Simulated assay, not measured.
Amino acid sequence: MTLTELRYIIALQDTGHFGKAAERCFVSQPTLSVAVKKLEEELGVSLFERSRAKVSCTAIGEQIVGQARHVLEQSERIRELAQQGRDPLGSPLAVGAIHTVGPYLYPRTIPKLRELAPQMPLYIEENMTATLRDKLRNGSLDAIVVALPFTEAEVVTQALYEEPFVVLLPRDHPLAAQTAIERSDLIQQDVLLLGEGHCFRDQVLEACPGLRQQLARSDRLLQSVVEGSSLETLKHMVASQLGISVLPLSAAQIGPYGDSLLCTRPFAGTPPSREIALAWRASFPRHQAIDIISRAIRAVTHDAQMAAPQS
């Protein structure tokens, strides 16, 4: 039994197809098929049920593939330990962030990281929470920046900062005449939200239950919710007079539109907000690297206050 064979069966379970599994592992299909068959013969059990339509795990195969994932994770820890022994701040650090944080945090944080750890190569990506969770678990990412609550077995989280939500409006919108927006003011408005699967969408609907109720109604004539794929898309749509939106303060900068087109207004009373945290595997050995990225994020969010100017 080899680690390569374990990678093969994990890829086969993930894809349900010998050809796709082979592509993922960068080998030919016959090579992967022979290796999987050899492993089954060595173990004396069938790991997969094979049909023309799909390849699926047997009951015992599910357990063995699950253990294989654990073995590969531990083997990666051996490499990480070796890297730590060489230089914890000299090896690449892979960091992920949710879509509603990455575009606004990375440009501020990366220069600070370069200042604190100039020799540490950095890989960054943006994705949805579920994908970041999977990549953190399988070792593709070393740390992720997500919104709380976030729970995962054997993962440590550290709160970094909290930011309020604000309302983004066209400058000539009737609500722009108010100094603060009541949550009830959003009812019967065309509120632009992120599409399903984005945690920020869920946070807005939780903070403004009236919007959730309207989403559940079959009658959409009085209020429409246009779903965008990014916060920047929503900002463009607001600038095009298609409605208003609720954004985290860090994303609410009106940028190239200027004061003549857009403005932001706070919520009245205690505003809805979100807490952003850093998460990493408890077994990740490069504690100095985690400390550096935490320090960098805290520094830039404190200095900039993660706020767009109110206008």
Rank of each mutant, 00 (worst) to 15 (best):
Q253I: 04
P248W: 01
S224V: 08
A239C: 09
L247W: 05
L247V: 00
S240I: 01
V238M: 02
K235R: 15
A252Y: 11
S240T: 01
L261V: 15
L261I: 15
G228H: 07
G243E: 00
M237I: 03
P256L: 11
C263M: 00
P256A: 13
P266L: 04
L247I: 00
L249H: 14
L234T: 08
P248D: 01
E227N: 10
K235P: 04
Y257F: 15
I254T: 14
H236L: 06
V225L: 04
G243C: 04
G243R: 01
L249A: 13
L262V: 05
S260T: 15
S260G: 12
S240K: 11
S229H: 08
Q241Y: 15
V238H: 03
S260H: 15
E232A: 13
T233L: 08
S224M: 06
P248H: 02
R265T: 05
I254S: 05
Q253L: 06
Y257E: 09
T233P: 00
L247Q: 13
S230M: 07
S229N: 09
V225S: 05
V238R: 09
L249S: 12
V246T: 01
S240C: 12
S245L: 02
L242G: 06
H236E: 12
S245H: 03
G243M: 08
E227G: 07
T264R: 15
A252P: 11
S230R: 11
G255C: 03
G243F: 10
S260K: 12
A251W: 01
C263K: 12
L261M: 13
M237C: 05
S229E: 10
L261H: 13
G228K: 07
S245K: 01
A252N: 04
A251P: 04
Q223F: 05
R265S: 02
S224L: 03
G258T: 13
Q253K: 10
S224F: 04
G258H: 13
E232P: 03
L247S: 10
I254F: 07
M237K: 09
L242A: 14
I254D: 07
S230I: 10
G255T: 05
P266W: 06
A239V: 02
C263Y: 00
H236F: 06
G258M: 14
